[in-house]
Design a protein around this nucleic acid. Structure first.
Lengths: 177, 177
DNA sequence: TGTATATATGCAAATAGTTGCACATAAAGT
DNA sequence: ACTTTATGTGCAACTATTTGCATATATACA
């Protein structure tokens, strides 16, 4: 499972609370690995047990206390070791494709609506990606860390672009039936 | 969950045994929704409980008995109803992208090897898709059922093509670091 | 005064998916 | 003789994910 590793990766940047991590998963790394805050807190518990992170409570006045999690050398080592293990290809599970596959049993108009919604969602995501790219990576000298994030981001961009193209093509096809 | 629906979809073609379904999930519909035979048998039990399929044992000489599952009118109705419900977008969970995101903590050579393996896997899949397309859909008059399957197949093809392009681009980028 | 949002943590239950095992027969290859 | 492949069904345990709930404080808005 890469949730553990995704968390460790975030913590290589800086020590963070569960809340910070959850926000990261909503914004940056979450584009490649989605996780809810509940999942993150539970996983943090496991990582602490394994000794991959160490956690310390920090008092705050007004707001609830934060628990800051720091990557340990053992955690860093685990991350390196993970990097050499084969990445398993993501399992394709797409309602939409199943619906096309079963077209004769589907409500075509409803399917068209769903296609439209999907396209909009991917469009929104794409815009977000472009904004991040412009803001953080364009016309700037980049170190290895940033180059890696840029490669991931560009893969994300291309993924969304090609997804939108595919959905448009499908829409045309079912429009011409 | 679309596993139930994917099974129902298969059964619209013809009544089948769990074994037949498992083969279908290895070949055709499994390209869009992967499932193991254990998952399928369990789900068939649930579908039977709900009254969406009815099952009857058929004796065979020599081979073990088969249990043939037939779609009921209730099952058909459930399928239609599912088709109007919004398709939820597939959750992206990709080890590889996380690894790029965390490039400075990764073993780059190992990552290159993984990229190569990935490309080969997608290439293999693509070849399979093309073969199916040539064999069943090219230069033939198609009914609605077949047109739907063709659209799904072509989306699969485009998905693989663009995935391979992305992986090649990423390979070039980390080669030039 | 009430409501929504942001900060902050986490349990419990339900659902979904993977992995390992178990039983049973027959044909085809080595 | 032995192994592999194919046919056929299914349980049990484990891992992962989603959804709903629970608690607590502060600020901003209507």
């Amino acid at each position: 499972m890469a949730l553990a590793e995704a968390i460790l990766v975030c913590l290589t940047e800086r020590p963070m609370s569960g809340y910070d991590l959850a926000k990261n998963f909503d914004a940056s790394i979450g584009f490649f690995w989605r996780a809810s805050h509940q999942q993150i807190y539970r996983e943090l518990g496991r990582l602490r047990e394994k000794g991959y992170v160490k956690s310390q409570e920090v008092s705050q006045n007004g707001k609830p206390n934060r628990i800051i999690h720091t990557l340990t050398p053992a955690g860093q080592k685990a991350l390196r070791s993970w990097s050499t293990k084969p990445a398993k290809h993501p399992s394709i599970k797409d309602d939409m494709l199943v619906k096309f596959y079963a077209l004769e049993n589907m409500d075509i108009d409803a399917l068209k609506d769903q296609l439209t919604i999907r396209m909009e969602q991917h469009q929104t995501k794409l815009v977000k990606y472009y904004r991040i790219k412009e803001r953080y990576y364009d016309d700037k000298p980049l170190d290895l860390t940033q180059k890696g994030k840029l490669i991931a981001l560009e893969m994300g961009i291309d993924q969304e672009v090609s997804m939108i193209e595919r959905l448009e093509a499908a829409m045309t096809k079912i429009g011409n039936l």
